[in-house]
């Protein structure tokens, strides 16, 4: 990707879950590291998230969910991204997501799932490395 352009990130909260401490802390940390961060706010539908990703022309989407509804919402988001021609975008997940569910989510094209206790630097490095390979 273009080296002059700052990495653009969409931090999104799909579903009805209102827990966004993690999403906001991550958004802040990414912004402090020099990325452009757009936060959707809570209670977003898959359609709203994909529209925001398209409009904001982001390089990566970070999905945060703690309610356990990832099994329905993540596949729906990935399906809509493909439909809109955004199938190549880097999508990451975080929150409370059981390890058992991770292989299925990765099969959908979600690159990585980060759980509680991850440091923001780990995420920043992951995003930078993944995008520099594009």
């Amino acid at each position: 990707m273009n080296q002059d352009r700052r990495i653009r990130v969409l931090v999104a909260k799909p579903g009805l879950d209102g827990h966004d401490r993690g999403a906001k802390v991550i958004a802040r940390a990414l912004r402090d590291s020099g990325m452009e961060v757009i936060y959707t706010g809570i209670r977003q539908t898959p359609e709203q998230i994909v529209d925001a990703a398209l409009q904001e022309d982001v390089d990566t989407i970070l999905l945060s969910i703690l309610s356990g509804a990832h099994g329905f919402l993540f596949p729906r988001i990935m399906e809509l991204l493909k439909k809109k021609g955004l199938g190549d975008i880097l999508v990451l997940g975080g929150g409370i997501i059981p390890e058992d569910d991770v292989p299925e989510l990765k099969k959908l094209g979600i690159s990585e799932i980060f759980g509680p206790g991850m440091s923001s630097q780990t995420l920043i490095n992951y995003i930078r490395e993944s995008l520099s390979q594009v």
Partner: peptide
């Protein structure tokens, strides 16, 4: 429709 995936979870 907005309940999909969330029913009985939390």
């Amino acid at each position: 429709p907005l309940s999909q995936g969330e029913v009985g979870k939390v």
